[in-house]
């Protein structure tokens, strides 16, 4: 099913869906079709990292993946056999900020890379994030925010994790267009990412 993988990588949306229908009709194993999608996604990720693809392609990739999964799911017995999760990631847009586009792209990319992601949504109170870290035990918490108003709540989460004795158990990553070294230092987080693939690169490097 290399043609499906290639069509995915080349952003040929109509062809991807037509090939999915064709292979399902031919009775090909649904898990194998899903694997062809995953291979396409991996290629898209590579091209993004190489600077050949951009946000527009990541969004189209997410669209194709979702549409394909919807077609394949009914044929899978016992659900998709995803590989073992590479780890848990908790994400939230911090209190006072309701921007979600960048965060949601990051969530899609992390999920496609094999991480189990819990998205708490936007304008999430600091206490809620701390409670979730305590209960769900993610390896990383991603805090998103576009406004400078988001910096104080980001710092509050980091401080709250310290107070709760959880700081050493979880990495804190910041995301957002205006996040830089100054904000990193101010908040005491571990790292920041200005694009969705950088999250994954960082996660993959964690033990």
């Amino acid at each position: 099913m290399q043609d499906l993988t290639n069509a995915m990588a080349e952003m040929m949306e109509d062809e991807v869906l037509a090939l999915t229908d064709k292979y399902l009709a031919e009775g090909k194993p649904p898990q194998a079709i899903l694997d062809a999608f995953q291979a396409g996604m991996a290629e898209i990720g590579k091209r993004y990292e190489a600077g050949e693809y951009f946000v527009a392609e990541l969004i189209m990739a997410g669209e194709m993946m979702n549409a394909g999964s919807e077609k394949i799911k009914p044929h899978l017995k016992g659900g998709p056999q995803a590989g073992p999760s590479k780890g848990r990631v908790l994400v939230a847009t911090v209190q006072g900020d309701i921007h979600d586009i960048g965060k949601n792209i990051a969530v899609t990319i992390m999920e496609l890379a094999g991480y189990e992601v819990k998205n708490l949504g936007e304008d999430v109170p600091t206490a809620t994030i701390i409670e979730e870290v305590k209960a769900w035990k993610p390896k990383m918490v991603g805090l998103s925010g576009l406004l400078t108003l988001a910096y104080d709540p980001m710092k509050a989460v980091v401080d709250g994790l310290k107070e709760a004795g959880l700081r050493d158990s979880v990495k804190v990553l910041l995301g957002g267009g205006q996040i830089d070294d100054y904000v990193l230092k101010f908040t005491g987080a571990d790292v920041y990412a200005n694009d969705a693939m950088a999250n994954v690169t960082y996660l993959n490097g964690l033990k």
């Binding site: 910096y151 205006q178 830089d180 100054y182």
Partner: peptide, 13 residues
């Protein structure tokens, strides 16, 4: 001059 610096930096920065 970075927007983040106005919030998180010091006047010397």
């Amino acid at each position: 001059v970075p927007g983040s610096m106005f919030h998180s930096g010091a006047p010397a920065d």
